[in-house]
Amino acid sequence: MNATIIGLAVGLVLGLVAAFGGFLAFIIVALFGAAGFLVGRFLDGQLDLSRLSGVAQDGGPR
């Protein structure tokens, strides 16, 4: 599945939530979607969080 199809699916889901669930439901779904995206990128190895942890590459503190 390419990024265009995934983006289309996410857009459709968010549109349905906004239409039937209201603005608060839309915001909640968007936040959970963003969190899921970040977790997926991290698990795929495409997101480096080492700079946020304060631990250098050699394992010692900065």
Results as ranks from 00 to 15, higher is better:
Met1Ala: 14
Asn2Lys: 00
Asn2Val: 02
Asn2Asp: 10
Asn2Glu: 04
Ala3Thr: 09
Thr4Ser: 12
Thr4Tyr: 11
Thr4Trp: 11
Ile5Glu: 11
Ile5Asn: 09
Ile5Trp: 13
Ile6Leu: 11
Ile6Phe: 08
Ile6Glu: 06
Gly7His: 01
Gly7Gln: 06
Gly7Lys: 02
Gly7Glu: 02
Leu8Trp: 11
Leu8Gln: 13
Ala9Gly: 03
Val10Gly: 02
Val10His: 00
Val10Ile: 04
Val10Arg: 01
Gly11Trp: 06
Leu12Pro: 00
Leu12Ile: 10
Leu12Val: 03
Leu12Lys: 06
Val13Pro: 00
Val13Cys: 05
Val13Trp: 04
Val13Phe: 03
Leu14Val: 03
Leu14Thr: 03
Leu14Gln: 05
Gly15Cys: 00
Gly15Gln: 07
Gly15His: 01
Leu16Cys: 13
Leu16Phe: 12
Val17Gly: 02
Val17Met: 07
Val17Gln: 07
Ala18Phe: 08
Ala18Ser: 12
Ala19Trp: 13
Phe20Thr: 14
Phe20Asp: 11
Phe20Ala: 12
Gly21Met: 01
Phe23Asp: 14
Leu24Thr: 15
Leu24Arg: 15
Ala25Phe: 09
Phe26Thr: 02
Phe26Tyr: 10
Phe26Glu: 05
Ile27Lys: 12
Ile27Trp: 14
Ile28Asn: 07
Ile28Asp: 10
Ile28Lys: 06
Val29Leu: 09
Ala30Cys: 03
Ala30Ile: 00
Leu31Ala: 11
Leu31Tyr: 08
Leu31Val: 12
Leu31Ile: 12
Phe32Asn: 07
Phe32Arg: 00
Phe32Thr: 05
Gly33Trp: 02
Gly33Ser: 07
Gly33Lys: 09
Ala34Tyr: 12
Ala34Arg: 09
Ala34Phe: 13
Ala35Arg: 07
Ala35Ser: 05
Gly36Gln: 05
Phe37Pro: 02
Phe37Glu: 06
Leu38Gly: 06
Val39Trp: 15
Val39Cys: 12
Val39Ser: 10
Val39Leu: 15
Gly40Pro: 01
Gly40Thr: 14
Arg41Ser: 07
Arg41Pro: 01
Phe42Leu: 15
Phe42Ala: 13
Phe42Lys: 13
Leu43Cys: 14
Leu43Glu: 13
Asp44Ile: 15
Asp44His: 15
Asp44Thr: 15
Gly45Asn: 05
Gly45Gln: 07
Gly45Trp: 04
Gln46Asn: 15
Leu47Tyr: 05
Asp48Lys: 09
Asp48Val: 03
Leu49Ile: 07
Ser50Asp: 09
Arg51Thr: 14
Arg51Cys: 10
Leu52Cys: 01
Ser53Pro: 00
Ser53Lys: 00
Gly54Leu: 00
Gly54Trp: 02
Val55Ile: 08
Val55Tyr: 04
Ala56Met: 05
Gln57Ile: 02
Asp58Gln: 00
Asp58Leu: 03
Asp58Ser: 01
Asp58Cys: 06
Gly59Lys: 03
Gly59Glu: 00
Gly59Leu: 02
Gly60Glu: 13
Pro61Cys: 08
Pro61Lys: 14
Pro61Gln: 10
Pro61His: 09
Pro61Ile: 08
